[in-house]
Each structure stands twice: as structure tokens, then as C-alpha cells.
Computed example of a mutant assay.
Amino acid sequence: MAGRVRAASMEGIAAYSLSARFAELTATMPGIVVELVSERHLINLTKHEPDISVSFVPPQGPRLSVRRVGDFRLAPFASKSYLIRRGGPDTRTDLQDHDFVYHVDDLIAIEPAHWLSEIRKPTDVVFRSTSMAAQQKAVAAGAGIGLLPLFSAKTNPALVPVLPDAVVVRRDLYLGVHEDIGCVGRVRAVTRFLTSLFTDEAGHLNEF
């Protein structure tokens, strides 16, 4: 099997989960070239913009094959320097007294990305970014508390979980492909790889 397969996903999943794993895929199937596209909006599978979509929102459109392949957990994280300076919250209510790092509200293109609203009203936000990587770096630098996916936060030893047992936010992961190309060998190989990946890494995506 050989050729290009374009996969689209959100920035966080693409940068902190898929990029390294696709390197493993190309090592075993060197004829396949994966193009990983990261966007903060849903890319249109029906227009064949990507071949495959990985998202926490199921893509919509005619003749799409979409299935849930797993989920991931988010939790509040802060830096050690922030917790020394401000003290850690003991309860969810205490979160109201802390500074937060979050998305740019009016630029959130997908409703499920409003995950901070599930634990508090995002009023005391001291830094905003459309980039999850930028948010994570700001949290690690001590700007405030951020609600981050476990799979990304665990890559930075400067980050400390805050109230991990009291705050549980989850998002499903959906794999989508258009029926016109789902049977193509190289596309089928990548979809099989991704399905196995999310099954094998369920613990990594959901545990500290």
C-alpha cells in the first residue's frame, strides 16, 4: 500500500497524541504518507477535504461512516509555582477564587470545546488563546489553572493536577471517513490503526 492519507483532527489531539503515533505507522508502512491537519473547526468530510476525521464531535453529512472509537478525560491543572503563590483549592467551590486560562470565547467554533463551563463560569480568566498548546504553556508558566486533556498535560512535569477526583470532564472521540474512500487500502489501513490506537491507549487518555 502506498500514497497519501490526509487525517484531520483538533490541535491538541493532533499535536499531543496522533503525531508521534503516526510516526510508528509510517515506520511499519513506509509507502503511506500521512498528512495531519489540525483545525479548531470541523473540516468537511463530504467535500473530501480530509480522508479521515478524528474529533470529539461526530461529523455530519451524507454517506459518512462515523463511529465512536474512545474517549478522553480533562482535569484542572496548575503549575507548582502558581499553587505555592495562591494555594490550592480544596473544593470545587474554591475554584471561583482562582485565575484561569481558557479559550477565546467568541472564537470557539465547536460547542463541546466550552468545557470549562462544566465546572465553573469562566469569569476570572487572565489569559486566553485559541491554541490548546499555548494555554498549556501558560498554565505551566504559572498564569492560572487550566482545564486540560490528560494526554497533553502529562507530557509536562511542571503541571500538577488540581482536584482530580472532584472534577471529571470527558469527551468522546469519533472516527469519520467518507464511504467513497473508506474501502481504499491505504485509508482502510490508517482507520484500522487509529481504531486500535484509541483502544490500546484508553488508560493513557483517561488516567493520571
Rank of each mutant, 00 (worst) to 15 (best):
L64Q: 09
A153D: 15
A109S: 14
P58G: 15
L194G: 11
G182C: 06
K80G: 15
V187E: 01
D71T: 12
P122E: 12
S9W: 00
G176M: 14
F198V: 07
V162C: 08
L197V: 10
P89W: 04
A189S: 14
L64E: 12
D51R: 01
A8W: 02
R4P: 02
N44H: 09
Y16I: 00
S19F: 01
F22R: 08
L25W: 04
K137H: 06
F100V: 11
R188C: 05
V101P: 05
G146S: 05
R171P: 03
E111H: 08
L205I: 12
K47H: 08
S196K: 08
H204G: 09
L95E: 03
P157S: 15
D90Y: 08
H103T: 13
G146M: 03
H178F: 02
G142S: 11
F193P: 03
A202Y: 05
Q136S: 13
S55Q: 01
L95F: 00
A140P: 08
V66E: 11
V190H: 02
Y102I: 04
Q96S: 10
F198C: 06
A109R: 11
M132E: 10
L205T: 01
A158P: 09
H98E: 13
S55D: 06
G182M: 11
P161D: 12
N206E: 09
M29N: 10
H114K: 14
V139A: 15
F77P: 01
R21D: 13
D99M: 01
S53I: 14
T46C: 11
L159T: 10
D105G: 11
L175E: 15
P122H: 08
V33T: 07
S53C: 13
E201T: 06
T26C: 07
H178E: 13
V66L: 04
G31M: 04
L74T: 04
Y16W: 00
L159V: 05
G203W: 00
A166Y: 00
V169Q: 03
E11T: 09
V184A: 13
F22L: 04
S19K: 07
D97M: 09
Y102Q: 03
T155K: 14
A27S: 12
A189I: 05
L173E: 08
V160W: 00
V125M: 13
T199I: 05
R63H: 15
I13C: 12
R63V: 10
L147H: 02
M29T: 14
